[in-house]
Design a protein around this nucleic acid. Structure first.
Lengths: 206, 206
DNA sequence: ATGAAGTTGAACTGGCAAGTACAATCGACG
DNA sequence: CGTCGATTGTACTTGCCAGTTCAACTTCAT
């Protein structure tokens, strides 16, 4: 096997520590030393697992992206079995998505992507392909089912999914000051309600 | 006066050059040397005008933000005298806003903000206060007029403005791969139309 | 036990770039 | 013309940090 597991995989600790430190300081400011410390590991150990600071960054991003995506996909589950009250179900999902979109890891991931897009153009493929694109796809699938069963009037589920997410997460940027400030739970609920109301007014069945 | 103008103000050239280079390479990778070259100026001259690389960055951001904001505000003008066909007017404004949101300077500004938010927390105030917040305000004002004259059914113009912008620019992120790819003009028109259609379905008067 | 693989701390190298010092130059204005 | 201030090129100091080396140490499999 490639890595022995004498202790609980250092590799995992390194990736998590790397993401934490990169998120806190940015790529340039983060020292490999800092990362090693955060992971509870010596600097040479980092270089045992990763050839480069750059590849360390890429792998850390990739791991974080995977986690974030799976969380978001899970949040869509209630849409497969919507109760009698569609708006209520939508609101629940919307709220959950907002919560996930405002948490620490998501915000940091987005910031890191934006910041290093110039120096790591390939990081985009690494993350986006396993990112919003797949989430949109999944949401569109659910919405298509709802349209088929006559509970939505949209003819283009992909567009509907795109707009649903836009209504939901668009206002976040301004309200969280680009992810630097947390938002009260009550306000998240209000935002979810507002987004769903507009969406349903536009595309719901009377 | 603070700066003589023996030649056409170097200061301006420096700020523009700085923004260009910062946008191209990111803060860390951009060398003051590069910036001086881009501005057609010697390195010590840069330090004559700016004490620091950091303050140079701040001033460059601030200047760019001012430009971007004024362009966007100007795009709202048609809403003050909407013709008989409100959706058409909205579409025109929407398209113009999309065009501005996808241009080089806007994208770079957004990227730079996101990337250096950790190292320059104060840059947020510098830009955001003169940024989306004021644009939202202006748009909300226009929408309030429309609501008063019975052409929109919304009761909360601020919310309406927020959602209009969200519907419009939300889909941009995915489609431009976070601002790294340009979008065909025709597609911008389609997106504007889609956003306006949904907005009008939700809040327009029949 | 014993040896292989991995880990550790510390110290070292090398390169890169911020910021500065300085002497030569340029341009404006009296 | 001559002076003053800003500008220029160059070269230097300085600090930082990625990446490496190495010898000592831990862990585990056989």
């Amino acid at each position: 096997m490639s890595t022995t597991r004498g202790r609980i995989d250092k590799r995992q600790a390194i990736l998590e520590g790397a993401f934490t430190v990169f998120a806190r300081l940015g790529y340039a400011q983060a020292g490999v030393q800092d990362i090693a410390a955060e992971a509870g590991v010596a600097k040479p150990t980092v270089y045992n697992h990763m050839t480069d600071k750059a590849t360390l960054f890429r792998h850390a991003l990739e791991a974080a992206a995977r986690t974030v995506l799976s969380e978001r996909l899970a949040a869509l589950d209630p849409l497969t079995t919507p109760g009698d009250d569609l708006p209520a179900t939508l609101e629940g999902v919307a709220y959950e998505l907002l919560r996930l979109h405002t948490d620490q890891r998501s915000c940091s991931l987005k910031r890191l992507l934006y910041s290093e897009i110039t120096t790591f153009p390939d990081a985009l493929d690494l993350v986006l392909d396993s990112g919003p694109h797949r989430l949109n796809q999944a949401l569109a699938d659910r919405l298509a089912r709802l349209a088929l069963s006559g509970r939505l009037r949209t003819t283009d589920p992909d567009l509907a999914a795109e707009q649903f997410m836009a209504l939901l997460t668009g206002p976040l940027e301004a309200r969280t000051r680009m992810g630097t400030e947390q938002i009260a739970d009550a306000q998240l609920r209000t935002m979810a309600r507002a987004a769903v109301e507009t969406f349903v007014r536009a595309w719901g069945t009377p």
